[in-house]
Computed example of a mutant assay.
Amino acid sequence: MNRRNFISKSTGTAAVSLLPVSFWSSLWLQEFTIEELTGKANVSFYGKNYQLRKEVNKAFLKMQAKAKKEGIHIQIVSAYRSYERQTQIFNAKFNRYTKQGLSGKDAVNKIIEYSTIPGTSRHHWGTDIDIIDANAKQPKNVLMPKNYSEDGPYCDMKIWLNKHSEKFGFYIVYTDNPKRKGFYPEPWHFSYKKTSVAMLKAYQDIDFKKIITQDTNLRGREFLTESFLNTYKKEHILDINPALLP
């Protein structure tokens, strides 16, 4: 029996309220496995040239079709990303930055301006998308904040998304709120709220620190201390658009 069916068949509010917090946490993890939450599961995904969960892809196609009628072609450049792929990205950046002269610690801090530590990426969930306007004249580097600004090639798309994306369930994750910490603002990164909020709720109950520190293939892992990861969770995982918090 899944979590939703169990709740609907509970005997009453009073009985439900007596159940311990650990019980509800276990139900969240029954719905989403640790492997799913960290990009290590073999999950069925949908999409053309990208991978998303079924309900997320359905909502995206509706949003894409609506925007297309108004001259904007929303194109996904990154959706689901496996643990292995995120590790490749992280390690490549670590190698590049250290070769440029940064210390290992500084290289890690440079990486997490925009890139996540493997096992902590929202892209592991199949709920999040990085998008561009395929109708615009494409710059050399597409995922740059300036491309979504007033003079950028994706400005019209960004204005359209500001007005309409939430109607289709998609919310920007890393806002430009000056009080927000963690990742730099990403005007290209949107998340399907209905599913990602539930997955973030489940994610908070797993020991992601153990998964990270035991990965001998991860470059710079010696700098990912308990203190560092506690701050990383607070600022990079949880300091996001409040609308996407459980």
Rank of each mutant, 00 (worst) to 15 (best):
F94K: 07
I240L: 06
N49F: 10
K54R: 15
R4S: 09
L27Q: 11
E36M: 13
A107Y: 09
K69R: 15
S44C: 01
S103K: 06
N177T: 06
Q214H: 13
S191F: 01
T225S: 14
N147W: 01
G152M: 07
K40I: 04
I129H: 02
F168Q: 12
L218H: 03
D215T: 11
P187Q: 01
I117G: 03
K193S: 15
G220S: 12
K58A: 11
I237W: 03
S196M: 09
F223S: 09
A202G: 03
N57E: 10
D130I: 03
I212P: 05
V173L: 12
Y148N: 09
N135R: 11
W188V: 02
L224D: 05
P246A: 15
K40P: 05
W125M: 05
K210Y: 06
N5Y: 05
Y174V: 00
K158M: 10
S10K: 00
G71R: 13
L229N: 12
T175S: 12
F223V: 08
T225V: 04
L245D: 07
F228R: 11
G39E: 10
D151H: 15
T213D: 01
N135P: 02
V21I: 15
R122N: 14
K68C: 00
R96V: 00
F94S: 04
F190Y: 14
V173F: 00
R4K: 14
K58V: 00
K179S: 13
A136T: 10
P246K: 15
V56A: 12
H189T: 04
K110W: 10
I7D: 00
L245S: 13
H236S: 01
R53N: 11
K68M: 06
T11M: 10
K158N: 11
E36C: 05
S8I: 08
K68D: 09
E235T: 07
K193Y: 10
S26Y: 04
L27E: 02
V142Y: 04
A107N: 11
L200V: 00
S10P: 13
K66I: 00
T98P: 04
I112A: 01
I72D: 01
F223I: 07
R3E: 04
W28F: 09
A41V: 07
I212H: 07
V197A: 12
M199G: 02
Y184D: 08
L229S: 12
H73R: 08
A92K: 15
A15W: 03
G104W: 05
S26G: 01
K110N: 08
Y83I: 04
D130H: 09
